[in-house]
Amino acid sequence: MKQHTIVALVQDRPGVLSRVAGLVRRRGYNIASLAVGHSEQPGISRMTIVVESDYVEQVVKQLYRLIEVIKVSDVTDDPTVEREMVVLKLHVPPSARHEIVSMCGVFEAKIVDVGTSTMIVEMTGAPAKVENFIEVVRPHGIKEMMRTGRIAMVRGARGHNAEQYVETGNGMSVPTLN
């Protein structure tokens, strides 16, 4: 199943996260990740939702039905910058320290805590690079892993591609004629 990256601009009100997640759930789709935080405008949050599905057009349209959703874009096929952070607590006996440190250097990961037999490392990058780093350190023994989920931003001046859509005057859009 294809992963779709959906970016949504929403009003920052109680329950909005629940509404968005509930709507995706209603169609039986799995949310691979969901990241939310304040946007550049006060009172407005930006969400990045990664949904596993072959068909998300209807989800995007239905999201517009939520009162607090201001704008939604499926940016899967748009040129974007995508980032994710992972924090790992690794099992690192003193003998393995050197190798971990050098691996962190290669991946530009940061060592943020060192214990007698553990290390906590943080690493930020494109989702594929994050996956790659996790696989490389996995043989050493991952005690705990936390990931922030993906955030995505469309490159260039435009927020998202709007060519194939007709604006209806309210920020909503419908497909144009063939």
Partner: peptide, 17 residues
């Protein structure tokens, strides 16, 4: 009046919201 209804069940040639 609801854009999410258009194209939901039936393919549409001319959508009007």
């Amino acid at each position: 009046i609801d854009p999410s209804e258009i194209g939901k069940n039936v393919k549409v040639t001319v959508p009007i919201v």
